[in-house]
Write a protein that binds this DNA or RNA. Structure first.
Lengths: 125, 125
DNA sequence: CCGGCAGATAGATGTATATCTATCTGACCC
DNA sequence: GGGTCAGATAGATATACATCTATCTGCCGG
């Protein structure tokens, strides 16, 4: 059949994933600002997802498929997919391309450095 | 009575709070490394604690007492104390001094910038 | 076609934790 | 000393979420 080339999974990331926010030092956060920032920080505040990110960052092109990530973690495939989805919803990775059955996710470096920027300027009083 | 001048609450922070860890880009994290880093990231991955930090950072001396922080958040005093304790256990703040009934906590800027350093060097592939 | 494999989805379950009320300890003031 | 106030602690509860098993979809090799 003249079917589509199978789409990547549709995962809506946070609106301002890479845009990011002002440094913590700028001013007290509103409830809304804090809530949104917390969502993205929660995404990386998990040992499994930190390992996933570090493994992807160590891969050529900053990308990896689920299959490469499952075995080293000793977790089941649905669990790894769940974590990849969580990272994608936070805008920290994106479903990049498919090669046959394999789905490749890539790290969004801007989103990570954006998060760092929120904490970074804390250098003195 | 010749009592002690009432000690600050005893809160054991993580061993390597300010020492911190290598950037995520350096190499895939071990389960232990990821676990420890996640504990500290979890401490800031909460809207209430982010607001607490930003309020303390906006205060002179980067410090504040529980009383100053409770009302603006609209939470009860035990809840705020709980969050301050969580931040202290992660080494992000320290019980600094007592003035009468008031306990002052101060932000440990090195711990925050250390966390930023874990994410910061992610600038390119 | 057909069997097998990668990954996505659904549902169940147990643990972690954010929040509250209630209580306790100390400090200050009169 | 008695009242009051800040903060710490204890215990209860409800929600969030990490993980699993089971199942479904779609791609590929023969």
């Amino acid at each position: 059949m003249g079917g589509m080339p199978k789409p990547l999974p549709v995962i809506e990331p946070l609106p301002s994933a890479a845009a990011c926010c002002a440094p913590l030092t700028d001013a007290p956060l509103s409830a809304e600002q804090a809530e949104e920032l917390a969502v993205r920080l929660k995404a990386i505040a998990d040992p499994t997802r930190l390992r996933l990110l570090s493994m992807m960052l160590a891969s050529p092109g900053l990308e990896a498929c689920t299959c490469d990530l499952t075995d080293p973690l000793g977790l089941t495939q649905p669990t790894v997919t769940h974590h990849l989805r969580t990272l994608a919803k936070a805008g920290l990775i994106v479903p990049e391309r498919r090669v046959g059955n394999f789905t490749y996710y890539r790290v969004v470096t801007d989103a990570l450095s954006g998060l760092a920027g929120v904490l970074a300027p804390v250098t003195a009083g």
